[in-house]
Each structure stands twice: as C-alpha cells, then as structure tokens.
Amino acid sequence: MFRTRIVVAIAAATLTAVTASHDATAGPGIQPVAAAVPRFDHIVMVMFENKNYSSINGSSSAPYFNSLATQGAKFSQSFAITHPSQPNYIAIFSGSTQGVTDDRCPINLGSKTNLASQLTGAGKTFKGYSEAMPSDGYTGCSSGTYRRKHNSWVDFSNVPASSNLRYSRFPSDYTQLPTVSFVTPDMCHDMHDCPIGTGDTWLKNHLDGYVQWAKTHNSLLIVTFDEDCGTPVNQIFTVFVGAHVKPGTYSKRIDHYTVLRTIEASYDLPGINNAANRSPIVDGWQ
C-alpha cells in the first residue's frame, strides 16, 4: 500500500511538471498545441472563389473536387469568415481580417504576425504562388487575370518578395516545395469568372500529381474557397487529402481560422489572433 502511494505521487508530480513545462513554452494566454495533428513535410493550400458548398458537393460539374472528397477528409460544415473576398484571404493567412472589409487595393498591413512570419521564426519556409502574376515579387493591384486582392501575403512587409512567386515557379519536383505553400489560381481558373468545370479541370491537371505524391511523402493538400456566392450562411467546400488523412465526411463546424490553426499545430506554432480561439482539426487523421 505504501509503495502504491509513492508510485501515484511520483506519477502525479511528473504530470504536473510536464504540463507546467508545456504551458511555459506555449506562453501566457496561448492555446496549447495539439499533438494529434501530424507534422507534415509539406502543406499546399489552394483557394477557389465564390461558390456555395452545395454547388460543389456532389456536382457533376466538379468531378475532381468530389474525387478528392472520397480520397480524403471532406468537411460538410465549413464556413468562410465574411464577404467579400479580400478579408477572407487575409483571415486565413493571419488569423484576422485586420479590419479590412472590402476589396480595395493596395492594402498594407505592415509587420503584423502572419503564418509566413511564424514559419520563418520557427526555421520553416513559406511561399505563395499566384497564377497570371506578371513577375515574381509583383506588388501591383492587377495584371491580366491576376488580382492582388487574392494574394494576402503581399500585404505584409515581413513576408519577403522572394516568397511572392508566379505559379509557373511551383516546382515539379515536390521535394523542393517550401514547408507551406499557398496557391492562388487566376480569375478564370479560381471559378470567379469561369464555370465550375473550368476550375475543376485546372485543379486536376495542376495538382493531382502532388496529391498522389503527397500520400506517400508525408504531405498534405488543402482545397477550400474564400467565400460562398454571397449568402449570409457562407458555407464552403473544404477537403484535406494526402498522408495520414482518414477518408470520410466530418461534420464538425470549421472555418478559415480553424484551417490556419491546424496548419500552425502541425509545426507546434501558437494560434495567432482569432486562430488562437479555435481548436485544430484532430479527428481526420489516422
């Protein structure tokens, strides 16, 4: 009996010490990182435009989107933050709309903390790839079918120009990808100005190679939308596919901040801004 009490006391003291150490590392007021999110070698996120969940889910116009849903984790209760486009792109990159309420350009947000600055601070890498952007490091508001309002990383002075790349620079050797990549198709391929089928075909032609590679190379693809077509509900189609993903449909309510928080958790990063108030996705992994 005496020996049992000693063992229990030692176990309790050890648990207390580990918890205190974790909390001290996380910092005051910061949500502890969930160990259940796999640590991926690479995460690629692709954002499409202005479609209701019901317009993509099960649609014959989006066979590849729905194929990804059967291969991965589909989130049937996924929501954008607001309308119009630009504040949603800023939200998923920095955990806040930063007070932006419209699509005006240019937006300059200075050195506020964002996913890229978090990753860099942790010794990881970030790059954004924008289709139809005329040159690497471009800061103009528009060119052809490129729009800066869909490129949130260019708004932050602490994200170097070398991280703001044309989509043509997306590597065919996926081992050369940065830790986290954001991909923005042009105004046609993101479905803003063209039909759903156009975006569906673009996604298959440009990212399916990465999807199949990711499954056996500890990597992940996230596909989501900035917002729905303007309704108050703002429900969007979101799917995760790649290594460690447990295929299925998940009904937990998530939003752009949840997606950001999940990416952060993969690299033991604290949640920033509103992402700190979200729990990372932990039930879609195997």
Rank of each mutant, 00 (worst) to 15 (best):
G230A: 08
H42V: 10
V239Y: 10
R5S: 15
P87W: 04
K112V: 14
R169G: 01
L177A: 04
P84D: 07
G110W: 10
G209M: 03
M187I: 00
A35R: 12
P28Y: 11
D103M: 02
D136P: 07
T249C: 09
H244S: 06
P270D: 13
F237D: 06
Q71V: 06
G99K: 03
V239T: 13
C141D: 00
G144P: 12
G121C: 13
S94Q: 07
R39M: 06
S117W: 12
Q77C: 09
G271N: 08
S157L: 00
P178C: 03
G29E: 07
L109R: 04
V44H: 11
S85I: 00
N273A: 14
N274L: 15
A91T: 12
C188H: 10
I92C: 05
L119A: 09
P106R: 02
A73Q: 13
T16E: 01
T258N: 12
F48L: 15
V183S: 02
N277L: 14
S142V: 01
M1L: 03
Q235M: 00
G137I: 03
D283N: 15
G99Y: 08
S143Y: 12
G128M: 09
L177I: 02
T25N: 05
A265P: 09
S78Q: 10
H206D: 12
P63Q: 04
T125G: 07
K215W: 06
S142Y: 06
N114S: 14
F48M: 14
P106F: 08
A62V: 06
V245E: 02
H83C: 03
T262R: 05
A161S: 14
V241Q: 09
S61T: 03
K124L: 13
M191H: 01
A243T: 11
V223N: 01
R39A: 14
G230I: 01
L15F: 14
A36H: 06
I90V: 09
T70S: 15
E264R: 07
D190E: 02
D190A: 00
R147G: 03
V239C: 10
H22E: 11
V154I: 10
C188R: 07
I56G: 01
V8E: 04
H206M: 04
T139G: 00
T82I: 07
G29K: 08
R278G: 04
P32D: 08
Y257I: 00
C188P: 00
V46L: 14
G230N: 07
T97I: 05
T101V: 05
T179D: 08
R169F: 02
D136T: 11
L15A: 15
H189K: 11
G121E: 13
G199F: 03
P270E: 10
H256F: 09
